[in-house]
Protein backbone atom coordinates (compact mmCIF):
# COMPACT_ATOMS: atom_id res chain seq x y z
CA UNK A 1 0.00 0.00 0.00
CA UNK A 2 1.42 3.36 -0.96
CA UNK A 3 0.80 6.35 1.22
CA UNK A 4 0.04 9.79 -0.14
CA UNK A 5 3.44 11.21 0.79
CA UNK A 6 5.22 8.56 -1.24
CA UNK A 7 3.48 9.83 -4.33
CA UNK A 8 4.32 13.43 -3.59
CA UNK A 9 7.66 14.94 -4.50
CA UNK A 10 10.28 15.81 -1.91
CA UNK A 11 11.39 19.45 -1.78
CA UNK A 12 14.30 21.02 0.07
CA UNK A 13 13.56 24.31 1.79
CA UNK A 14 15.94 27.27 2.12
CA UNK A 15 15.07 30.34 4.18
CA UNK A 16 16.65 33.79 4.21
CA UNK A 17 16.22 35.02 7.74
CA UNK A 18 17.17 38.61 6.99
CA UNK A 19 17.87 40.69 3.89
CA UNK A 20 21.55 40.53 3.05
CA UNK A 21 22.08 37.03 4.45
CA UNK A 22 22.32 33.81 2.43
CA UNK A 23 19.40 31.43 2.14
CA UNK A 24 20.04 28.60 4.57
CA UNK A 25 18.81 25.03 4.33
CA UNK A 26 16.19 24.43 7.02
CA UNK A 27 14.65 21.07 6.06
CA UNK A 28 12.41 19.37 3.54
CA UNK A 29 8.78 18.56 2.90
CA UNK A 30 6.45 16.77 0.47
CA UNK A 31 4.31 18.71 -1.98
CA UNK A 32 2.52 18.37 -5.33
CA UNK A 33 4.47 21.15 -7.01
CA UNK A 34 6.64 24.22 -6.42
CA UNK A 35 3.75 26.53 -5.55
CA UNK A 36 2.38 24.15 -2.97
CA UNK A 37 5.86 23.54 -1.59
CA UNK A 38 6.31 27.28 -1.07
CA UNK A 39 3.05 27.55 0.87
CA UNK A 40 3.80 24.49 2.97
CA UNK A 41 7.27 25.84 3.66
CA UNK A 42 5.78 29.11 4.82
CA UNK A 43 3.38 27.23 7.13
CA UNK A 44 6.04 24.80 8.37
CA UNK A 45 9.24 26.76 8.63
CA UNK A 46 8.29 30.42 9.09
CA UNK A 47 5.46 30.27 11.59
CA UNK A 48 7.30 32.78 13.78
CA UNK A 49 8.49 35.10 11.01
CA UNK A 50 11.80 33.30 10.73
CA UNK A 51 12.27 34.46 7.17
CA UNK A 52 11.89 37.17 4.57
CA UNK A 53 12.37 34.88 1.58
CA UNK A 54 11.96 31.15 0.88
CA UNK A 55 13.46 28.97 -1.85
CA UNK A 56 12.16 25.49 -2.59
CA UNK A 57 14.10 23.07 -4.78
CA UNK A 58 13.14 19.56 -5.82
CA UNK A 59 15.41 17.22 -3.86
CA UNK A 60 15.96 15.21 -7.02
CA UNK A 61 17.42 18.32 -8.67
CA UNK A 62 20.19 18.57 -6.11
CA UNK A 63 23.50 17.08 -7.17
CA UNK A 64 25.63 16.48 -4.11
CA UNK A 65 29.23 15.44 -3.53
CA UNK A 66 29.63 12.10 -1.76
CA UNK A 67 30.65 12.21 1.89
CA UNK A 68 32.45 8.89 1.49
CA UNK A 69 34.68 10.37 -1.20
CA UNK A 70 35.49 13.46 0.87
CA UNK A 71 39.09 12.40 1.47
CA UNK A 72 40.13 12.24 -2.15
CA UNK A 73 37.65 14.92 -3.28
CA UNK A 74 39.24 17.61 -1.09
CA UNK A 75 42.72 16.12 -1.13
CA UNK A 76 44.15 18.75 -3.54
CA UNK A 77 43.91 21.51 -0.90
CA UNK A 78 45.36 19.49 1.98
CA UNK A 79 49.00 20.15 1.13
CA UNK A 80 48.60 23.87 0.42
CA UNK A 81 48.91 25.60 3.80
CA UNK A 82 50.19 28.69 2.00
CA UNK A 83 46.61 29.47 0.94
CA UNK A 84 45.99 30.57 4.53
CA UNK A 85 46.89 34.02 5.85
CA UNK A 86 48.28 32.54 9.07
CA UNK A 87 50.99 30.70 7.12
CA UNK A 88 52.95 33.94 6.74
CA UNK A 89 54.95 35.08 9.74
CA UNK A 90 55.34 38.87 9.72
CA UNK A 91 56.97 41.26 12.20
CA UNK A 92 54.59 42.35 14.99
CA UNK A 93 54.18 46.02 14.02
CA UNK A 94 52.73 45.03 10.61
CA UNK A 95 51.13 41.73 11.56
CA UNK A 96 47.58 43.17 11.38
CA UNK A 97 47.41 43.04 7.56
Amino acid sequence: MTTVTEKLELFEVFVRSKRGLDHKHVGSLHAEDHEQALEYARDCYTRRSEGVSIWVVKSSDICASQEDDADCFYDPSDDKPYRHATYYVLPDPVNNM
Binding site: Y88, L90, M97
Partner: peptide
Protein backbone atom coordinates in the same frame (compact mmCIF):
# COMPACT_ATOMS: atom_id res chain seq x y z
CA UNK B 1 44.43 38.54 3.43
CA UNK B 2 46.84 35.83 2.27
CA UNK B 3 47.48 37.80 -0.92
CA UNK B 4 48.75 40.85 0.89
CA UNK B 5 50.75 38.87 3.43
CA UNK B 6 52.56 36.75 0.85
CA UNK B 7 53.45 39.93 -1.06
CA UNK B 8 54.80 41.63 2.01
CA UNK B 9 56.74 38.52 2.99
Amino acid sequence: SFHQRQGYE
